[in-house]
Design a protein around this nucleic acid. Structure first.
Length: 717
DNA sequence: CCAGGGCTGTCACTA
DNA sequence: ACAGCCCTGG
């Protein structure tokens, strides 16, 4: 059996798999068989009797990776994977917190807030604290709270010299108090709470340390400080911490990932050096040479050079479009040509830096009649109808969940408007009770009867919990809440929403809880932690569209990397920052290494962004790829009204600056104009031609406006 | 006081 | 293109 397991591994892979029972760092390049090494390592540990399944802890970042590990493992060995703990950081922490909820100071049915729910909880809190959400934008508050939690810091441990930060700390403390009151935890809290549970409870930590002798971590470069601390706590001084990662693919600094954890691991566990997996089984030589050349520009790398024995392959194709629309059409044309040659649509992917870019592509794809699928668009559990139904379910599970109550108290509209809700909130604050309790006591006011009806609805649902299956419960919720009627009346989107709700009932019917008594809570938890789970029709043959981030870990025969422009990729927020730029370069490295056979790089000379035309220059990353690997494709002729390349556009000029000289309905960029209402202003950009021209004008008194020349009366000054 | 329709500002990546 | 806000009629 051993021989079978190890057959076909290359020497480095073999060295990693059969590494002795001590800590290790495996530096696994893109396409180097990382998942295979991880799963074979576990299988090897089990089959050689070095470890029992219960001694294995496998940690990943995505549910998909966790599931893949489990399926591959059960294909290799007849093991009972149930006693093995394999899951995501969040999933595993959740599991521990559910078991030890009392020690962790949580209600048994605690619920998990996704970022959207966290944001609404923060907005609600700011209102209660009477803090201006202009001075303290909810996004910034969330970033402050999450950033500190990810570094393991509670509000009580923080101090500040400036009043602004002091206020943030105050908000952080109040936020935690609110979450505790409502019995909810956010994503970062899941980890921090679990870390605190283990670090404060020596007996418990000892129990898990004795159990998990082998801790295997996937995508280690993406761990943040707290996750690494959590791993160290569980590993203690004896367990083998087997970490697999690639510092060149670290692209999650924005959510707290610390590439430095890789060096820390080497130092903290006295590991002499990483095992390097450099043979690539995915891409042709030219693609790897390009990737190697690109990433070499970064410093502080652990260092690695991908190679293949697959041959050079085709040159990398480069296309410079005159506009985002032209770029999209180019992609469509090439895709069609490849399909004619016999390639599968689903083996091709279009990658972009930011989601906003997908629109121009979609438009062109629809026109070209090509099937496509967008990854990470609106996910199943993020749809409003699903969120509504789930909020009812949460309320049934835990009526003190204020977020859930606020979401559905007036959905469908039942005559409990903003004013009534405000009254209930005031009541709850005055009496120090949850919104639900306040709602039950809200007998006064104009909508008292309507509030009473809502209370009755929830109580009716709660009374049936013991009698119904989960699927029946959800079905009842959809009917009795009026959601079904609401969407039946909606001619435009109702049908699709009803279908999604039916799909939710199906999902509930097929749900397999670990503990049937906790089915509802487990279902809600799974929905929060597996937000990206239900992607639409995965089976159909469709072109794949996604962000570079979403593409990590995936591979395709042909890959289009689009929007290679300064300010877009690399993103403008990273342009002036060396660390940020290096992260962007790693992102580009990830994008390039997704391709097996053919790689296209494209850019546009003009692009609509934030409602304005921009005239960017080509991304530096294109130039960092050796010329001899690249074949530049001839572009179309730009039509008259679209400006040709704008070489005079430098970083000193604002990004929205347009080329001078163009005539737009008798006006030109840079011209001073007068308007009856807005006064004097300057034309800063324009779009359209002939009689259909819109000008963007910066008015001295009234700021930036877009005006349509057909309606606006402008005078030259 | 509530519901629904039009308007304005915004838009990096995510478990 | 979408969400959040304001305005209007009931």
């Amino acid at each position: 059996m051993n021989a079978d397991l190890l057959a076909g591994l290359n020497p480095e892979q073999l060295r990693a798999v059969t590494w002795p029972a001590k800590s290790a760092l495996v530096l696994a390049g893109a396409g180097s068989g990382k998942t295979r090494v991880l799963t074979t390592r576990i299988a090897w540990l089990l089959s050689t009797g070095q470890a029992s399944p219960a001694a294995i802890l496998g940690v990943t970042f995505t549910n998909k990776a966790a599931r893949e590990m489990q399926t591959r493992l059960s294909a290799m060995l007849p093991v009972n994977t149930r006693t093995m703990w394999i899951g995501t950081f969040h999933g595993l922490c959740n599991r521990m917190l559910r078991i030890h909820y009392r020690d962790a100071g949580l209600p048994q049915t605690f619920q998990i807030m996704d970022p959207g729910e966290q944001s609404s909880a923060i907005k609600r809190l700011l209102k209660i604290l009477d803090v201006s959400d202009e001075k303290f934008p909810p996004k910034a508050v969330a970033a402050f709270i999450n950033g500190n939690k990810e570094a393991g810091r509670r509000a009580g441990e923080l101090s500040a010299h400036d009043s602004y930060t002091r206020k943030l700390i105050e908000i952080y403390a109040a936020y935690d108090a609110q979450c505790n009151r409502e019995g909810v935890v956010d994503f970062a809290e899941l980890l921090l709470r679990c870390y605190e549970l283990l670090s404060r409870n020596a007996a418990l930590a000892e129990h898990y340390r004795n159990r998990f002798r082998h801790i295997l971590v996937d995508e280690f470069q993406d761990t943040n400080l707290l996750q690494y601390a959590w791993l160290r706590l569980l590993a203690g001084s004896d367990a083998a911490l087997f970490a697999v990662g690639d510092d060149d693919q670290s692209i999650y600094a924005f959510r707290g990932a610390e590439v430095g954890n890789m060096r820390s691991l080497l130092a903290d566990y006295g590991i002499e050096g990483p095992v390097r997996l450099e043979q690539n089984y995915r891409s042709v030589g030219n693609i790897l040479t390009a990737a190697n050349a690109l990433i070499e520009k970064n410093d502080g790398r652990l260092g690695k050079n991908l190679w293949t024995d697959a041959g050079e392959g085709e040159p990398i194709r480069l296309y410079e479009a005159y506009s985002d629309g032209d770029e999209a059409e180019f992609v469509c044309d090439e895709v069609k040509a490849l399909v004619r040659e016999g390639w599968n649509l689903s083996d091709m992917a279009v990658l972009y830096r930011s989601n906003a870019q997908s629109r121009a592509l979609e438009h062109a794809l629809v026109n070209a009649g090509l099937a496509y699928r967008i990854y990470g668009g609106l996910r199943f559990f993020e749809r409003q109808e699903i969120k509504h139904a789930m909020a009812y379910l949460r309320l049934v599970s835990n009526p003190d969940d204020d977020n859930a109550l606020l979401r559905v108290i007036n959905v469908p509209a039942r005559g409990i408007g903003a004013r009534s809700v405000e009254n209930i909130q005031t009541l709850s604050r005055e009496q120090g009770v949850s919104l639900w309790q306040a709602t039950c006591g809200a007998s006064g006011g104009r909508s008292a009867g309507k509030v009473a009806a809502f209370v009755l609805l929830i109580e009716e649902l709660r009374a049936k919990v013991e009698l119904l299956t989960l699927a029946e419960m959800i079905s009842l919720i959809i009917d009795r809440s009026g959601l079904r009627a609401l969407y039946e009346a909606d001619r435009k989107e109702g049908e699709e929403r009803l279908a999604n709700l039916d799909e939710l009932i199906n999902a509930a019917a097929g749900f397999m809880p670990d503990d049937p008594a906790q089915e509802m809570v487990e279902f809600l938890t799974a929905a929060s932690l597996e937000a990206g789970e239900h992607q639409a029709d995965a089976g159909s043959d469709a072109l794949q569209l996604m962000t570079v981030h979403a593409a990590k870990g995936l591979e395709f025969d042909a890959v289009f990397v689009s929007g290679l422009e300064e300010g877009l990729f690399p993103h403008e927020n990273s342009l002036n920052d060396s660390k940020g730029l290096q992260e962007e370069r790693r992102l580009m490295y990830v994008a390039v290494t997704r391709a097996r056979k053919r790689l296209y790089l494209s850019s546009a000379q003009s692009r609509m962004l934030h409602g304005q035309s921009r005239y960017p220059i080509r991304s530096r990353f294109v130039d960092e790829i050796p010329q001899e690997l690249v074949h530049e494709l001839a572009g179309k002729k730009a039509p008259q009204r679209a400006p040709a390349k704008a070489p005079w556009l430098t970083e000193a000029m604002p990004a929205w600056a347009s080329p001078k000289g163009g005539d737009y309905g008798g006006f030109h960029i840079g011209q001073s104009v007068g308007h009856a209402k807005f006064g004097i202003g300057m034309v800063v950009s324009a779009e359209g031609s002939g009689s259909d021209v819109r000008l963007q004008i910066n008015f001295a008194e009234h700021g930036m406006k877009w005006l349509d020349l057909r309606y606006a009366k402008l005078t030259a000054q």
